[in-house]
Design a protein around this nucleic acid. Sequence first.
DNA 1: GCCAACGTTGGC
DNA 2: GCCAACGTTGGC
Length: 140
Amino acid sequence: MNFWLVKQEPSAYSWEQFVQDKGTYWNGVRNYQARNNLQAMKKGDLVLFYHSVVGKEIMGIAKVTRESYPDPTAEEGNWVVVDLKPAKAFNKTVTLEEIKNNSKLKDIALIKQSRLSVMPLKATEFKILLQMGDTPYSGV
DNA sequence: GCCAACGTTGGC
DNA sequence: GCCAACGTTGGC
């Protein structure tokens, strides 16, 4: 299993909306590196949902329910989406500041490549973030 | 193919 | 609101 993190501005599509919708297709990615990451996601992979700009915190865990397929909102180009559904909300959201202050997370893509919106996480990073979120998750 | 100009993202 | 980082575009 692989682990990922996706960013979204809550004013565009929030975690709360995601939970209310019981899932969504992750559309609108228009960056090649982010697209490649979407294409590498496998069904069952776990994805952390981060609120950028407003909040700047990880809200919870999502799960990949369908692997990449063409983005129906793309008018041109080879863009893809995956289907995600909420798996578990963090008991305690994890802020960017906390992540920056954790020396074990200094190499996390969220900090190193602040503009990337879909990024891989190492298993160790994922586990640390779950601990920081006070959120045990079976099967990890 | 290089690189300057420009646009976008996102933290501060 | 500013600006750094970085991706994209277009002239040469």
